[in-house]
Computed example of a mutant assay.
Amino acid sequence: MGWLPSIFGGDASNPLGKLDPKLREFLEKESPVRYIPNQRAASTQRQDAGAAAETKPEPAAVPAASLYQDGRYAHLWKNYRPLAEVEEETSTDHDKLMSVLEGYKERKAAIAKAGLENCAPQQEEWINCMKSGSWEDQLQMCRHQVRRFERCYTMQSRFLRALGYGSVAGRPSEVDEDIQLHADALFQRMLQHEAEVEKAKENGTLIPTFDPSLPKTNAANTTNIKPSEELQKQWKEKLDQLPEDERPAEEAALRADLQAKADVARNVKKIWDAKREEREVRRAEGQATFSDTIAALFSRGK
């Protein structure tokens, strides 16, 4: 009849709750088993919770490319491989060489594009002069505006090259964007410095100095390439033709260009060395191809 209390509003989980107090005291004294309400239910709940905690599966591992790091859709990422890894395995030696050379060309194109973006005000001034400038400026083909634009583009290119714009493949675009902004800030500081120099000359005061704070060669870094004596001579001749304030930026840009060329040569050498090792392994196993023999003859000749 355990269902009667639930119908009349009684507490089915505690059947002793409605007994006479004296009768309850007698049962508690005489009964060998002490009744504690909800003990069994609570114990069962604890056991169920413990079993659920033990059987709870850990989230499946997913690659970093997944937007759900908690393990959702892990079955879809089971056979995932990064694109760079797949391209590395499927690309030929020719593809790798072309990738290195294309990267060098793309860096030069990216520097040119970033320089044009930073010199957009000067370019707009030039275009407006050609469209609706004064008759004197148009008679001179807006040469003053052209010179301001050319100088801006030249200095922006120097700053971008010296600061390492686009010099690291696969780097986040935010880094190159910060370098582009810094190059433009350096150019604006340079223009402000030139105005301060003119003002100091007019007032006869001390002429301020300008320090672009460009990266310099670190002697502790063994990867830095030192120019040859002939190249240093060519650099000196080129630097002597520039104004003194522009020489540090041009020298830093030249050193950055030399480092970029050295990095390209180093990557090409790695590819050729790996290819030579593969030929040596095939020759040692007696599986050398005709092209391996020709390549070995050319290498001996060199």
Rank of each mutant, 00 (worst) to 15 (best):
Q138V: 11
Q123P: 02
F149E: 00
F149W: 11
L116C: 11
R148M: 09
M130P: 04
L139C: 09
Q145F: 01
E150Q: 15
Q138P: 07
M130C: 12
L139F: 07
M141Y: 04
E150T: 13
L116S: 03
F149H: 03
S132V: 06
E124H: 15
E150D: 15
W135D: 04
R151S: 09
Q138N: 09
E124R: 09
M141E: 09
C119V: 08
D137L: 05
G133L: 02
V146G: 10
P121H: 06
Q138S: 10
R148I: 06
V146K: 11
A120R: 11
V146L: 13
K131Q: 12
L116H: 04
Q145V: 00
C142N: 00
C119N: 02
G133S: 03
H144E: 11
L116G: 08
G133C: 07
E150M: 14
F149S: 02
P121S: 12
F149G: 03
L139G: 09
C119F: 03
E125A: 15
M130R: 14
H144D: 14
D137R: 07
W135L: 04
L116T: 03
D137G: 03
Q122T: 04
D137A: 05
Q140R: 04
E124C: 10
Q123L: 12
L139Q: 06
R148N: 08
Q145E: 13
Q123A: 10
E124T: 14
E136Y: 10
E136V: 03
E117M: 07
I127P: 01
G133F: 06
W135S: 02
Q122F: 02
E150L: 14
A120I: 06
W126A: 00
S132P: 08
W126F: 06
Q140C: 03
D137P: 01
N128Q: 14
C142D: 02
R147N: 14
I127A: 10
S134D: 06
Q123Y: 08
E124K: 15
Q138R: 15
C119M: 06
G133N: 02
Q138E: 07
R151N: 10
W135G: 00
R151E: 08
C142A: 05
N118W: 02
L139H: 10
R148D: 12
K131H: 09
E124A: 15
L116N: 13
M141Q: 07
S134A: 01
L116V: 09
R147P: 01
R151I: 04
C142H: 00
M141L: 10
H144S: 14
S134N: 04
Q122G: 03
A120T: 06
E125I: 03
G133E: 04
E117Y: 05
S132R: 12
C119A: 11
W126P: 00
N128M: 12
Q140F: 07
E124M: 15
L116Y: 11
M141I: 00
E125D: 15
W135C: 02
G133M: 05
E117G: 02
P121F: 05
D137N: 05
M141D: 11
F149M: 15
A120K: 09
N118M: 13
C142Q: 11
E150F: 10
R148L: 14
Q122S: 11
Q122H: 05
R143A: 08
R147W: 12
H144V: 05
S134G: 07
G133A: 04
R148K: 14
N118D: 09
M130N: 13
M141T: 05
K131S: 13
Q122N: 08
Q138W: 06
R151F: 10
N118P: 03
Q138F: 10
E150S: 10
S132N: 12
V146C: 11
